[in-house]
Amino acid sequence: MTDKRRTELEQLISRTALGDREAFDALYAATSAKLHAVVLSILKDRPEAEETLQDVYVRIWQGASRYAVNGLSPMTWLITIARNRAIDRLRARASRPATAPAEAASTVAATTPSPETATIHAQERRMLDECLSQLADAQAGAVRAVYLEGASYADLAAREGKPINTVRSWLRRSLLRLKDCVGQ
């Protein structure tokens, strides 16, 4: 994401926080196709994804005033809301107890984000694909399935034919390896 686009989205979110409907419409136009793709990737059902997308934008409208203090880049904040909402729907569908709303993390005030932080994030994104390709196929596949399809440990265990604890310790190590690689 270019700095210009980042600034534009930040401005639209700030104006939305002030109740500016035009800015909210513009934010929707600029980001809804991407967020729809995120919820669709997790839910794999068009009508449910459409309904979830509506929930997501209602939350964005209501939560925009908390954006400024959470220190996330605008697109990450939007994607996180979309992803968490879709995962809640997915878990509710399987009538499993809902997982923790990781969204809570985005409501915690951050120390002032610096321009350097933004640059580091941009570099990390470029590294992400490269680093995933350095993991074993099964590990990279598991990370993608968890993030993009909302797979749970139980799903991974069923897929790999291994106990949940084994899968968990294996995925944790993959994630740590990914972080080390991306941060280099």
Binding site: T80, S106, L128
Partner: peptide
């Protein structure tokens, strides 16, 4: 938050789908 930033790149790679 760092993890949310780090992994958001995966979502940014998805093909947009108009609602």
């Amino acid at each position: 938050r760092e993890w949310q930033e780090r992994l958001a790149g995966l979502a940014e790679g998805l093909t947009p789908v108009m609602a």
